[in-house]
Protein backbone atom coordinates (compact mmCIF):
# COMPACT_ATOMS: atom_id res chain seq x y z
CA UNK A 1 0.00 0.00 0.00
CA UNK A 2 2.84 2.33 0.97
CA UNK A 3 4.64 1.38 -2.22
CA UNK A 4 1.56 2.20 -4.29
CA UNK A 5 1.16 5.45 -2.41
CA UNK A 6 4.80 6.33 -3.06
CA UNK A 7 4.36 5.48 -6.71
CA UNK A 8 1.20 7.50 -7.17
CA UNK A 9 2.06 10.48 -5.05
CA UNK A 10 5.84 10.35 -4.91
CA UNK A 11 7.55 13.32 -3.36
CA UNK A 12 8.31 16.73 -4.69
CA UNK A 13 11.81 15.87 -5.84
CA UNK A 14 10.85 12.52 -7.36
CA UNK A 15 8.05 14.22 -9.25
CA UNK A 16 10.49 16.69 -10.72
CA UNK A 17 13.55 14.56 -11.30
CA UNK A 18 12.41 13.44 -14.77
CA UNK A 19 12.55 16.42 -17.15
CA UNK A 20 9.06 17.78 -17.73
CA UNK A 21 9.51 18.25 -21.47
CA UNK A 22 11.32 16.76 -24.41
CA UNK A 23 10.40 14.68 -27.42
CA UNK A 24 9.51 11.63 -25.32
CA UNK A 25 6.99 13.70 -23.37
CA UNK A 26 5.34 14.92 -26.59
CA UNK A 27 5.48 11.42 -28.07
CA UNK A 28 3.73 9.91 -25.07
CA UNK A 29 1.03 12.54 -24.82
CA UNK A 30 0.26 12.71 -28.55
CA UNK A 31 0.33 8.97 -29.16
CA UNK A 32 -1.86 8.36 -26.11
CA UNK A 33 -4.33 10.98 -27.28
CA UNK A 34 -4.43 9.57 -30.82
CA UNK A 35 -4.79 6.00 -29.65
CA UNK A 36 -7.51 6.92 -27.16
CA UNK A 37 -9.35 8.70 -29.97
CA UNK A 38 -9.18 5.55 -32.11
CA UNK A 39 -10.02 3.32 -29.16
CA UNK A 40 -13.24 5.21 -28.50
CA UNK A 41 -14.26 4.70 -32.12
CA UNK A 42 -13.32 1.03 -31.95
CA UNK A 43 -15.43 0.60 -28.81
CA UNK A 44 -18.28 2.42 -30.50
CA UNK A 45 -17.98 0.11 -33.51
CA UNK A 46 -17.79 -2.94 -31.24
CA UNK A 47 -20.98 -1.96 -29.44
CA UNK A 48 -22.78 -0.98 -32.65
CA UNK A 49 -21.84 -4.22 -34.39
CA UNK A 50 -23.09 -6.20 -31.44
CA UNK A 51 -26.39 -4.37 -31.43
CA UNK A 52 -26.70 -4.73 -35.20
CA UNK A 53 -26.12 -8.46 -34.98
CA UNK A 54 -28.72 -8.86 -32.26
CA UNK A 55 -31.20 -6.66 -34.07
CA UNK A 56 -30.90 -8.48 -37.39
CA UNK A 57 -31.10 -11.80 -35.62
CA UNK A 58 -34.22 -10.73 -33.74
CA UNK A 59 -35.93 -9.02 -36.67
CA UNK A 60 -35.40 -11.72 -39.25
CA UNK A 61 -35.72 -14.84 -37.21
CA UNK A 62 -39.17 -16.22 -36.36
CA UNK A 63 -40.70 -15.22 -39.66
CA UNK A 64 -40.93 -16.91 -43.04
CA UNK A 65 -42.59 -16.34 -46.39
CA UNK A 66 -44.17 -18.87 -48.75
CA UNK A 67 -44.24 -17.98 -52.44
CA UNK A 68 -46.80 -19.72 -54.63
CA UNK A 69 -46.54 -19.31 -58.41
CA UNK A 70 -49.70 -18.10 -60.08
CA UNK A 71 -51.86 -20.86 -61.55
CA UNK A 72 -55.51 -21.60 -62.42
CA UNK A 73 -56.10 -23.15 -59.02
CA UNK A 74 -54.16 -20.65 -56.94
CA UNK A 75 -57.02 -19.94 -54.52
CA UNK A 76 -57.49 -23.64 -53.78
CA UNK A 77 -53.77 -24.03 -53.35
CA UNK A 78 -53.65 -21.13 -50.86
CA UNK A 79 -56.49 -22.68 -48.86
CA UNK A 80 -54.74 -26.05 -48.80
CA UNK A 81 -51.40 -24.55 -47.86
CA UNK A 82 -52.95 -22.52 -45.00
CA UNK A 83 -54.70 -25.67 -43.77
CA UNK A 84 -51.46 -27.60 -43.93
CA UNK A 85 -49.63 -24.87 -42.05
CA UNK A 86 -52.34 -24.85 -39.44
CA UNK A 87 -51.54 -28.46 -38.64
CA UNK A 88 -47.76 -28.11 -38.79
CA UNK A 89 -45.85 -28.05 -35.50
CA UNK A 90 -43.58 -25.01 -35.16
CA UNK A 91 -45.96 -22.66 -36.94
CA UNK A 92 -47.71 -20.01 -34.85
CA UNK A 93 -49.78 -18.39 -37.58
CA UNK A 94 -50.01 -17.91 -41.32
CA UNK A 95 -51.91 -15.47 -43.52
CA UNK A 96 -52.06 -14.49 -47.12
CA UNK A 97 -50.56 -11.07 -47.97
CA UNK A 98 -53.31 -9.17 -49.72
CA UNK A 99 -53.03 -7.00 -52.81
CA UNK A 100 -52.70 -3.71 -50.95
CA UNK A 101 -49.80 -5.06 -48.88
CA UNK A 102 -48.10 -6.40 -52.01
CA UNK A 103 -48.60 -3.01 -53.65
CA UNK A 104 -46.94 -1.34 -50.64
CA UNK A 105 -43.99 -3.74 -50.87
CA UNK A 106 -43.48 -2.99 -54.58
CA UNK A 107 -44.20 0.74 -54.45
CA UNK A 108 -40.64 1.81 -53.57
CA UNK A 109 -39.40 0.29 -56.82
CA UNK A 110 -42.34 0.58 -59.24
CA UNK A 111 -44.48 3.38 -57.85
CA UNK A 112 -48.09 3.34 -56.68
CA UNK A 113 -49.75 2.77 -60.04
CA UNK A 114 -48.83 -0.82 -60.64
CA UNK A 115 -51.50 -2.82 -62.48
CA UNK A 116 -51.28 -5.80 -60.18
CA UNK A 117 -54.02 -7.63 -62.04
CA UNK A 118 -52.01 -7.64 -65.25
CA UNK A 119 -48.82 -8.88 -63.59
CA UNK A 120 -48.30 -12.54 -62.80
CA UNK A 121 -46.98 -11.91 -59.35
CA UNK A 122 -46.61 -14.88 -57.01
CA UNK A 123 -48.97 -15.10 -54.05
CA UNK A 124 -47.22 -14.55 -50.71
CA UNK A 125 -48.10 -16.15 -47.41
CA UNK A 126 -46.57 -14.67 -44.28
CA UNK A 127 -45.72 -17.26 -41.65
CA UNK A 128 -44.86 -16.73 -38.00
CA UNK A 129 -42.74 -19.50 -36.55
CA UNK A 130 -42.27 -20.64 -32.99
CA UNK A 131 -38.77 -20.20 -31.52
CA UNK A 132 -37.91 -23.81 -32.41
CA UNK A 133 -39.47 -23.42 -35.86
CA UNK A 134 -40.91 -26.15 -38.11
CA UNK A 135 -39.17 -29.07 -39.83
CA UNK A 136 -38.33 -27.05 -42.93
CA UNK A 137 -37.53 -30.06 -45.15
CA UNK A 138 -40.75 -31.90 -44.24
CA UNK A 139 -42.81 -28.76 -44.62
CA UNK A 140 -41.28 -28.03 -48.03
CA UNK A 141 -42.19 -31.54 -49.22
CA UNK A 142 -45.74 -31.12 -48.04
CA UNK A 143 -46.03 -27.70 -49.66
CA UNK A 144 -44.76 -29.15 -52.93
CA UNK A 145 -47.57 -31.69 -52.79
CA UNK A 146 -50.25 -29.09 -52.04
CA UNK A 147 -48.92 -26.38 -54.39
CA UNK A 148 -46.29 -27.41 -56.94
CA UNK A 149 -43.55 -24.74 -57.17
CA UNK A 150 -44.21 -23.31 -53.69
CA UNK A 151 -41.09 -22.06 -51.91
CA UNK A 152 -40.71 -21.83 -48.13
CA UNK A 153 -38.29 -18.98 -47.36
CA UNK A 154 -37.34 -18.43 -43.71
CA UNK A 155 -34.82 -15.66 -44.63
CA UNK A 156 -31.90 -17.76 -43.45
CA UNK A 157 -29.94 -17.04 -46.61
CA UNK A 158 -30.20 -13.31 -45.74
CA UNK A 159 -30.12 -13.52 -41.99
CA UNK A 160 -27.12 -15.79 -41.49
CA UNK A 161 -24.67 -13.80 -43.69
CA UNK A 162 -25.86 -10.53 -42.16
CA UNK A 163 -25.43 -11.78 -38.62
CA UNK A 164 -22.07 -13.27 -39.55
CA UNK A 165 -21.02 -9.96 -41.09
CA UNK A 166 -22.04 -8.09 -37.96
CA UNK A 167 -20.20 -10.58 -35.78
CA UNK A 168 -17.09 -10.22 -37.92
CA UNK A 169 -17.36 -6.47 -37.66
CA UNK A 170 -17.50 -6.82 -33.89
CA UNK A 171 -14.46 -9.10 -33.90
CA UNK A 172 -12.60 -6.63 -36.08
CA UNK A 173 -13.40 -3.87 -33.62
CA UNK A 174 -12.09 -6.06 -30.80
CA UNK A 175 -8.90 -6.82 -32.72
CA UNK A 176 -8.51 -3.08 -33.40
CA UNK A 177 -8.78 -2.40 -29.67
CA UNK A 178 -6.10 -4.99 -28.93
CA UNK A 179 -3.84 -3.53 -31.62
CA UNK A 180 -4.37 -0.03 -30.29
CA UNK A 181 -3.52 -1.21 -26.78
CA UNK A 182 -0.39 -2.92 -28.09
CA UNK A 183 0.71 0.19 -29.96
CA UNK A 184 0.18 2.32 -26.85
CA UNK A 185 2.22 -0.09 -24.74
CA UNK A 186 5.05 -0.36 -27.26
CA UNK A 187 5.16 3.38 -27.98
CA UNK A 188 5.27 4.31 -24.32
CA UNK A 189 7.84 1.61 -23.53
CA UNK A 190 10.05 2.95 -26.33
CA UNK A 191 9.52 6.52 -25.18
CA UNK A 192 10.39 5.61 -21.59
CA UNK A 193 13.44 3.69 -22.70
CA UNK A 194 14.54 6.62 -24.89
CA UNK A 195 13.91 9.04 -22.05
CA UNK A 196 16.10 6.95 -19.80
CA UNK A 197 18.86 6.87 -22.43
CA UNK A 198 18.54 10.60 -23.08
CA UNK A 199 18.70 11.31 -19.37
CA UNK A 200 21.69 9.12 -18.62
CA UNK A 201 23.28 11.89 -16.60
CA UNK A 202 20.27 12.07 -14.30
CA UNK A 203 20.30 8.31 -13.82
CA UNK A 204 24.05 8.45 -13.04
CA UNK A 205 23.49 11.17 -10.47
CA UNK A 206 20.62 9.28 -8.86
CA UNK A 207 22.70 6.12 -8.65
CA UNK A 208 25.63 8.03 -7.23
CA UNK A 209 23.51 9.35 -4.38
CA UNK A 210 22.17 5.88 -3.64
CA UNK A 211 18.86 5.64 -5.49
CA UNK A 212 17.55 2.12 -5.89
CA UNK A 213 16.39 0.97 -9.31
CA UNK A 214 12.84 0.94 -8.00
CA UNK A 215 13.01 4.61 -7.03
CA UNK A 216 14.36 5.58 -10.44
CA UNK A 217 11.83 3.36 -12.22
CA UNK A 218 8.98 4.80 -10.15
CA UNK A 219 10.02 8.37 -10.95
CA UNK A 220 9.95 7.63 -14.69
CA UNK A 221 6.85 5.47 -14.42
CA UNK A 222 4.94 8.17 -12.58
CA UNK A 223 5.82 10.73 -15.23
CA UNK A 224 4.89 8.51 -18.16
CA UNK A 225 1.72 7.21 -16.53
CA UNK A 226 0.49 10.74 -15.87
CA UNK A 227 1.42 11.82 -19.40
CA UNK A 228 -0.45 8.86 -20.89
CA UNK A 229 -3.43 9.51 -18.63
CA UNK A 230 -3.57 13.16 -19.65
CA UNK A 231 -3.12 12.46 -23.35
CA UNK A 232 -5.63 9.62 -23.39
CA UNK A 233 -8.17 11.68 -21.47
CA UNK A 234 -7.94 14.48 -24.02
CA UNK A 235 -8.15 12.02 -26.93
CA UNK A 236 -11.13 10.22 -25.41
CA UNK A 237 -13.02 13.45 -24.79
CA UNK A 238 -12.44 14.65 -28.36
CA UNK A 239 -13.55 11.25 -29.67
CA UNK A 240 -16.65 11.34 -27.45
CA UNK A 241 -17.61 14.70 -28.92
CA UNK A 242 -17.01 13.37 -32.44
CA UNK A 243 -19.14 10.29 -31.75
CA UNK A 244 -21.89 12.43 -30.27
CA UNK A 245 -21.93 14.47 -33.50
CA UNK A 246 -22.51 11.41 -35.71
CA UNK A 247 -26.09 11.56 -37.12
CA UNK A 248 -28.48 9.31 -35.28
CA UNK A 249 -32.01 8.04 -35.95
CA UNK A 250 -33.50 5.67 -38.49
CA UNK A 251 -32.45 7.81 -41.46
CA UNK A 252 -28.82 7.43 -40.49
CA UNK A 253 -28.94 3.72 -41.39
CA UNK A 254 -26.02 1.74 -40.01
CA UNK A 255 -24.58 4.92 -38.49
CA UNK A 256 -27.54 5.08 -36.13
CA UNK A 257 -25.91 2.29 -34.12
CA UNK A 258 -22.62 4.16 -33.71
CA UNK A 259 -22.60 6.04 -30.45
CA UNK A 260 -23.04 5.48 -26.78
CA UNK A 261 -26.23 5.21 -24.83
CA UNK A 262 -26.74 5.41 -21.08
CA UNK A 263 -24.12 3.50 -19.15
CA UNK A 264 -22.12 2.89 -22.32
CA UNK A 265 -20.64 6.38 -21.92
CA UNK A 266 -18.67 4.97 -19.00
CA UNK A 267 -16.66 2.98 -21.53
CA UNK A 268 -15.09 6.28 -22.61
CA UNK A 269 -13.86 6.92 -19.08
CA UNK A 270 -12.28 3.49 -19.04
CA UNK A 271 -10.05 4.39 -22.03
CA UNK A 272 -7.74 6.87 -20.21
CA UNK A 273 -7.65 4.58 -17.18
CA UNK A 274 -6.63 1.63 -19.34
CA UNK A 275 -4.06 3.78 -21.17
CA UNK A 276 -2.58 4.83 -17.83
CA UNK A 277 -2.50 1.21 -16.68
CA UNK A 278 -0.77 0.16 -19.88
CA UNK A 279 1.69 3.03 -19.60
CA UNK A 280 2.42 2.06 -16.01
CA UNK A 281 3.18 -1.56 -16.90
CA UNK A 282 5.08 -0.74 -20.08
CA UNK A 283 7.25 1.87 -18.37
CA UNK A 284 7.98 -0.30 -15.35
CA UNK A 285 9.10 -3.17 -17.56
CA UNK A 286 11.07 -1.00 -20.02
CA UNK A 287 12.82 1.05 -17.34
CA UNK A 288 13.62 -1.96 -15.15
CA UNK A 289 15.11 -3.75 -18.14
CA UNK A 290 17.09 -0.70 -19.22
CA UNK A 291 18.49 -0.08 -15.75
CA UNK A 292 19.55 -3.69 -15.48
CA UNK A 293 21.22 -3.59 -18.90
CA UNK A 294 23.08 -0.43 -17.98
CA UNK A 295 24.49 -2.19 -14.93
Amino acid sequence: MTRLQNLLLGDTTANRVVPPSGFTASLTVISSAAMAFLAVFAISLFLAAGELSNRWEAELSGTATIRLPVSETIDDQVTNVLAALDQTPGIVSARRIDDSEQLALLAPWFGQDIPLGKLRLPVLIEVEETQAGPDVEGLSNRLAAEAPGAVYDNHSRWRIPLVEAADRLRNLALISLLLIASVVAVTIALAASSALAANGQIVDVLRLVGAEDRWIANAFTRRFTLRALGGAFAGAIIAAIAVALIPSGVDAGILSGLGFRGGQWLFILSVPCLAAGLAFLATQIAVARRLKEDG
Binding site: D11, T13, R16, L206, V209, G210, E212, W215
Partner: peptide
Protein backbone atom coordinates in the same frame (compact mmCIF):
# COMPACT_ATOMS: atom_id res chain seq x y z
CA UNK B 1 16.98 20.33 -4.68
CA UNK B 2 20.14 18.68 -5.95
CA UNK B 3 21.70 18.84 -2.52
CA UNK B 4 18.56 17.24 -1.09
CA UNK B 5 18.53 14.39 -3.64
CA UNK B 6 20.23 11.83 -1.34
CA UNK B 7 17.47 12.34 1.20
CA UNK B 8 14.76 12.04 -1.44
CA UNK B 9 16.08 8.77 -2.84
CA UNK B 10 16.37 7.24 0.61
CA UNK B 11 12.76 8.17 1.42
Amino acid sequence: ENVLLPLAVSH
